[in-house]
Design a binder for these strands. Structure first.
Lengths: 240, 240
DNA sequence: CATTCCACTTGATCTTGATCAAGGAATGGC
DNA sequence: GCCATTCCTTGATCAAGATCAAGTGGAATG
């Protein structure tokens, strides 16, 4: 891999980097706002439609994907096909297990996704030379660890009803972060099967719990995926 | 906090640091083998009997504990008392959420534990100045993240029987790492209740599954806590 | 417009693991 | 050694959620 053309410096015009306006020249997402521009032919923007795989379980990692738009789901599968979603990632997260040559899980576009793809060696080199980037990635890793452990409580100790409420709460927080008061509006980025696989339930149970929340006027659902939270306080109480 | 006396350097005699032979002067565990000696009155060795709390959930973090001997359990509790163990830590792990002022969970001595306690500010300063230590802690965090996600699969998608086998496997790996062939011997560092809280089960179910494994001659149990694995291959198959 | 397909919902029944209840075995104090 | 206490096991019953089985509705296709 040719990294001789790699040029890392604090950009005088970091605005160029925002939202990847300068494609193939700027790194965005988590790496944005760093006032850092990576001028390299290696970095490029990639769009994936929902359902498309970014990295497969137990496959070689040769690049990291910085999410700019959309939702990525991380999952693990047992030999007999049972699946567990172990995390959702949103912009501006970086997708990919740092410092591993093999991915411990599958990363898949849940919704349509735009990412900025950085070759592995390049990012690892960037990290070494850039304390702020290093700190940022350390923070993301530690935050993901906190989230994974929070979710272990949900998986191990909550009822089906609490699990579903917890997931709605999680998604609402990410997809409608600025909302105030009782109302939240968003589109579920995942299918009922994905929800079930995230919560350790079956699709039938998920469906029943959503119907129950609908019947109790905590949420309203239109077109299967469009959720309107009517009573956020109640939803939080349900989540335990 | 007085850190003026802090002196960090690569030790010429790292042997002094092994197993904390020089107490109050050396950092051990994860920090051992770093050929690094921290000469500071702030670092000290602490022994905690089983059951004693090291850090409470939502309490201020003012020190990190480097495990030198024993097993530490990390847990989270819901308001109504339901508990989930979100991780076990063994020597030479570092206990404590890096870069947070408040602990997201309880850390408790599962067995009798010896730790090397380092004040928070001191360790954070050490990290800044020491790339190898930084890498080591990053690796630990990423490994813990992998483990948490593996456990999410166990919690969400495995049966009671598979869960219990998975835990025995996990503990055997840590407490009898050098064993070869089919036999493994160790003492459970945790009670049945802890096992249940780690697996998202009840003590009754755990007890029944252990009895089943005993009946099938996969393990033998003496004095409640002493486990002898008779057929490691079978145990691995059971773990799914 | 009819048809197919897919994602989701709803109902009936079954199973796994929880709960309730009792008793047994190890541990600590005196 | 004896007692109390705590931890663990085992049995009987119950219920949450899984499984099995039909639908429903919306979007895509011809």
């Amino acid at each position: 891999m040719d990294i001789s053309r790699l040029d890392i410096h604090n950009s005088d015009t970091p605005e160029l980097c925002k939202s990847c306006e300068v494609r193939h020249k700027g790194m965005c997402g988590a790496l944005n706002g760093m006032e850092l521009t990576l001028l390299s032919k290696h970095t490029r923007q990639v769009s994936q439609p929902a359902g498309e795989e970014l990295v497969g379980e137990s496959t070689d990692i040769d690049a990291y994907d910085n999410i700019m738009r959309g939702v990525v789901k991380l999952s693990k599968t047992l030999e007999d096909g049972r699946q567990q979603i172990v995390g959702l990632q949103f912009a501006p997260d970086l997708v990919g297990r740092l410092y591993a040559s093999e991915s411990p899980m599958t990363a898949e576009a849940a919704s349509d996704v735009d990412v900025c793809r950085v070759p592995r060696r390049i990012l690892e080199r960037l990290i070494d030379g850039n304390p702020e980037l290093r700190k940022r990635l350390m923070d993301q890793s530690l935050r993901e660890l906190d989230e994974a452990r929070d979710w272990m409580v949900t998986l191990g100790r909550k009822t089906a009803s609490e699990k579903v409420a917890s997931l709605l709460l999680l998604i609402a927080t990410h997809l409608d972060p600025d909302a105030e008061g009782e109302r939240r509006v968003f589109d579920l980025p995942v299918s009922r099967l994905d929800i079930a696989d995230y919560l350790g339930l079956t699709i039938e149970t998920v469906s029943r719990q959503l119907s129950k929340l609908k019947g109790e006027k905590v949420i309203s659902i239109t077109a299967n995926r469009h959720i309107e939270v009517l009573n956020f306080t109640k939803l939080r109480v349900r989540a335990g």
